Amino acid sequence: MHRRFTLLTSSVSEIHLQQIFALVPSVLSHYLDFSLDILLEVLKNIEEARIKLPQSTDEFEDESILIQERHPRLVGAFGSIDGLSLPVQVSDDVEIENATYNGRKTEHRINNILAFSPRGVIIDVVLNAPGSWHDAHVTKPIFDCLHTHVPEGYYLVSDTAFPHSTSSISGKIKAPLKAGEHVPSDPAEQAELLAFNHQLLSYQQTPEWGMRAMQGSFGRLWIPLPIGSKEDHFRLLEICCRLFNIRANCVGINQIKSVYMPVWCAGEDERMWNDMGNMLFGEIRK
């Protein structure tokens, strides 16, 4: 178990793990492969680790209310979305090498899309897409889900890299104004639009917090991932996402959650200290 989490939470290579635990490469590889399969199956059966969108209109509304407590103009927003680009090793296969090369970063990468709720948990993902793909292309499965699953009036907040004005997802994703974008000439409408845009910009920072927490918790994501099978990549990334949700739900150390659920946190802290006081001093009071 310790070796398994050392792989996920540290940035050491497998060669260093072999040295630390005195294992030959074949034994370490077999052990990690076997244990990660077990870990993923266990996580799939833990409710706190689930990656899921809200399931009913009431659940969408509950998420939106949390956001509106800080951003009252974002009526209907239930989460935020952004891309996470991770380094990957260079493949000897020319097709894979071309697919993973990201021209903007001039590195070989894989692209992932993560959507976060105001509770700080991941509610939808697209994992292990080629680094040469644009976020808008990678996000297509989430677009399809937004179109078919999300009730009218509810939307995700994104940056301007995501298409949000096409007819198929119109109203399901909202992004801040781009530079030079048209604004109404009427002063009142202009002021309202700019105020709405300011709150979009503010809430759009939340996926950045989530990405930073993800990479901060799992140091393995900082070093280039092996260019082996895509199934191994997907498994590792899914495990990290599910463990991230457990950490957010059970431990509560999460910047998004601490900002958008401060009342909940205060209530939990008070209950915890009261229970601790009753436990420690109950006999004295008698």
Rank of each mutant, 00 (worst) to 15 (best):
Arg3Trp: 00
Glu14Pro: 00
Ala22Leu: 12
Val24Met: 01
Leu28Arg: 04
Tyr31His: 05
Tyr31Gln: 10
Leu40Asp: 13
Ile46Gln: 12
Glu47His: 09
Arg50Tyr: 00
Arg50Thr: 03
Phe60Asp: 09
Ile67Phe: 01
Ile67Gln: 00
Glu69Met: 09
Gly79Cys: 05
Gln89Asp: 11
Gln89Thr: 08
Glu95Leu: 06
Ile96Ser: 07
Thr100Leu: 13
Gly103Trp: 01
Lys105Ile: 14
Ile110Pro: 00
Phe116Gln: 10
Pro118Gln: 06
Ile123Glu: 01
Asn128Phe: 12
Pro130Ser: 14
Val138Cys: 08
Lys140Thr: 14
Pro141His: 11
Phe143Gln: 09
Leu146Trp: 03
Tyr155Leu: 01
Val157Lys: 05
Pro163Cys: 13
Thr166Gln: 15
Ser168Leu: 13
Ser170Gly: 07
Ala175Leu: 01
Ala175Tyr: 01
Gly180Asp: 06
Glu181Ser: 09
Ala188Gln: 09
Glu192Lys: 13
Leu194Pro: 01
Leu194Val: 03
Gln205Phe: 04
Glu208Arg: 15
Gly210Cys: 09
Arg212Ala: 08
Ala213Glu: 15
Leu225Glu: 03
Leu225Gly: 07
Ser229Arg: 13
Cys240Arg: 00
Phe244Lys: 11
Phe244Gly: 04
Cys250Val: 13
Ile253Thr: 15
Asn254Ala: 05
Pro262His: 05
Cys265Asp: 01
Ala266Glu: 05
Asp269Val: 07
Trp273Ser: 07
Ile284Val: 11
Arg285Lys: 12
